[in-house]
């Protein structure tokens, strides 16, 4: 077991983790943050996307120990029913949510894009979302939702 310190959704944590323990397992099993989903376990689907030190990563490909000293944002740290993040609002209103399993990862990829680039082009949106697979909605509404959220952010 090794001791790591993390800030997750603005709360500091000290955890004892196994050296081979993945970050997704630490988040889900130790912190109960179940909004982070595992779809493939090999960094292909992006359902486990979180934001680590300002960058999106697949939490199934990162060891918990590697995240020592990092600042993390999971879906639980983004918006709430009283004040949803513009990305979340746009996803609901546009109809970009169907089965919803890819949604937390999608929201985090979109949020991270807009945090860095408030005026993304369609190409930039496509690239930013290209690490998140979706099997239901066909991406069309997802990309549109990100665009709408970006436009709302500008106002």
């Amino acid at each position: 077991m090794i001791e790591i310190k993390l800030v997750v959704n603005e709360k500091p944590y000290t955890l004892n983790v196994e050296p081979s323990e993945r970050l997704i397992d630490a988040l889900r099993n130790r912190l109960g943050l179940l909004g982070t989903k595992e779809g493939c376990g090999e960094g292909e689907c992006g359902a486990c996307t979180i934001i680590m030190d300002g960058k999106t990563v697949n939490s199934c490909l990162v060891l918990a120990a590697q995240a020592n000293g990092s600042v993390l944002t999971t879906i639980e740290g983004v918006g709430n029913r009283r004040s949803p993040h513009p990305v979340q609002k746009a996803f609901v209103e546009v109809g970009a949510v169907q089965c919803g399993f890819c949604t937390p990862g999608m929201v985090l990829s979109a949020k991270n894009l807009l945090d860095k680039n408030s005026h993304p082009s369609e190409t930039e949106i496509g690239i930013a979302m290209s690490g998140n697979l979706c099997r239901c909605t066909g991406y069309d509404k997802i990309l549109r939702a990100v665009k709408i959220a970006a436009e709302e952010g500008k106002q």
Binding site: G43, G46, T49, V62, A128
Partner: peptide
């Protein structure tokens, strides 16, 4: 290479 998430890591 890979995806944005993989390129970040």
């Amino acid at each position: 290479m890979g995806s944005p998430q993989i390129r970040n890591q």
